[in-house]
Every structure is written in structure tokens, then in C-alpha cells.
């Protein structure tokens, strides 16, 4: 019978906690930047100008058809050769994760906008509103309610994807765990605690998705 031993935790708590903070901050940055880029690209795909459509669709398709790990490594090791500028591991991670997340956000947002009854747009036009006002005041508020569960769901995936940055030696939760495991020879306990930390972060979010979904189904 395996003897569980968690005494290492008291010595390495700070270390693990700093990894947790890196994971949380990186996730938050990726979610915020991804939502902004995703919204811009969603509007791009439905733009009346072909130029914007092509740019946005290309960006979305390239990002979502590349595995995040491949994108991480490519941006960190290959891109600098192309542009002649060193990129820090953190910057490379941020770019790769944001592009990847944004491509999925963009598709969710586009679907949400196009899911709003076209009569709503016309009604806005009919009272003399301009395109931007119609989007901002009439289409987006209705679309956001519908797409919120999917956006939170995608954010859960984005948060999980941050665990990949440990391959670039970024001291996130998983990477710190790995170091502790090597030092203490207690991989079972350490990785179990790491997994529990991720669960504690993500479970409230998936509960939120359930809540939002049930609220939407009551409303309509």
C-alpha cells in the first residue's frame, strides 16, 4: 500500500502558489486579449469590405488549424529567425495562446451576431440608426446573452491550454509542480495537488456555464 506523504507541501507552498498566480494571470491576459481580437475578427468576417473579410478569415483559420503546442514552439524558436528579433518565452506564449483562443472566440461571436433575427437590424435602420449604433445597442446585447455560455466554455479551454507553456520553461503551475516533484521524489502527491488546483480554478467556471445555459433556456 502506497504511503501518501504531503509534508513537502509546507516547504514548497510559496513556490506552488507563485505558479498558480502565473497560470491565473496568463489566463486572464489571454482571455481578455483573445476576446478583443476575437471580437475584431468576428466583425471582420461579416464586414462589407472584402479586404477585412479576407484578413480576419485567414487569421482565424491559420490559428485554429495549428495545434497550440506547435504554435508555441514555432513562435518561440522559428519566428525570431524570420523577423530577426528575440521573443521572450512569456511573449511567445501570450501570442500563441491569444491567437488560438481568439480564433474560437471569433467564431462564437460571429455565430452569435448572425443568430440575431435580421429584422432587428432592419428595425434599427428604420428608426434612423447608423450601422455602428445598431451593432452596439441592438445586435451585440442580444448576441452576447446567447453566446455567453460558449465564451465561458472556450475560456475554460484557454485556461487549460496555458499548461502547455511549461515546455518553454515558464514557471506556471504545472512547471513549478514538475520542479517540486523532481526535488522531493513525490510525483504522485505533487501532480495530484497540481491537478486539484486546476480543478478548483475550472470547476466554478463550468458551473457558471451550466447556470448561463439554463438561464437562456428559461428566457426563450
Amino acid at each position: 500500500m502506497y504511503q501518501w506523504n504531503f509534508s513537502w507541501l509546507w516547504d514548497n507552498y510559496d513556490f506552488l502558489f507563485s505558479g498558480l498566480m502565473v497560470t491565473i494571470l496568463l489566463s486572464a491576459a489571454v482571455v481578455v486579449a483573445g476576446l478583443i481580437l476575437g471580437t475584431v475578427n468576428a466583425l471582420g468576417t461579416i464586414s462589407r469590405h472584402k479586404f477585412f473579410r479576407i484578413i480576419s478569415i485567414s487569421m482565424i483559420e491559420v490559428s485554429r488549424c495549428t495545434p497550440v503546442l506547435v504554435a508555441l514552439i514555432w513562435i518561440y524558436y522559428a519566428l525570431p529567425i524570420l523577423i530577426g528579433v528575440e521573443i521572450s518565452a512569456l511573449t511567445a506564449s501570450f501570442i500563441a495562446l491569444t491567437l488560438y483562443g481568439a480564433s474560437f472566440y471569433a467564431e462564437i461571436i460571429r455565430g452569435g451576431i448572425q443568430g440575431v433575427d435580421p429584422g432587428q437590424y432592419e428595425a434599427g435602420e428604420a428608426i434612423g440608426l447608423m450601422h455602428g449604433d445598431i451593432l452596439r445597442r441592438i445586435i451585440l446585447p442580444q448576441a452576447i446573452r446567447k453566446m455567453l455560455p460558449s465564451l465561458v466554455n472556450q475560456s475554460v479551454i484557454n485556461l487549460k491550454n496555458t499548461s502547455l507553456v511549461s515546455v518553454l520553461a515558464i514557471p506556471d503551475l504545472l512547471y513549478q509542480g514538475k520542479l517540486i516533484a523532481l526535488e522531493t521524489f513525490r510525483p504522485l502527491e505533487v501532480y495530484t495537488v497540481v491537478a486539484l488546483f486546476y480543478f478548483a480554478l475550472l470547476f466554478p467556471l463550468t458551473m457558471l456555464v451550466r447556470h448561463l445555459e439554463s438561464r437562456n433556456s428559461v428566457k426563450h
Binding site: 433575427d117 429584422g119 432587428q120 432592419e122 428595425a123 434612423g128 440608426l129 449604433d133 441592438i138
Partner: peptide
């Protein structure tokens, strides 16, 4: 020109009053 549609096309996320105020406030 005012337009009244077959399917009303009221804004579901706004109250009745906000629906009617939207044009004067935002457009005018």
C-alpha cells in the same frame, strides 16, 4: 419615414419605453 413591420421587430432586451426612446435618443 416610420416603418411598421409584419413581425413587429421590437427590441427584446429593452423595455417598452426604451424601445420607443431608442430612435429619439440614439438617432436624433
Amino acid at each position: 419615414t416610420g416603418m411598421v413591420f409584419q413581425h413587429f421587430n421590437l427590441f427584446p432586451h429593452m423595455t417598452v419605453l426604451q424601445n420607443v426612446m431608442e430612435g429619439p435618443v440614439t438617432a436624433k
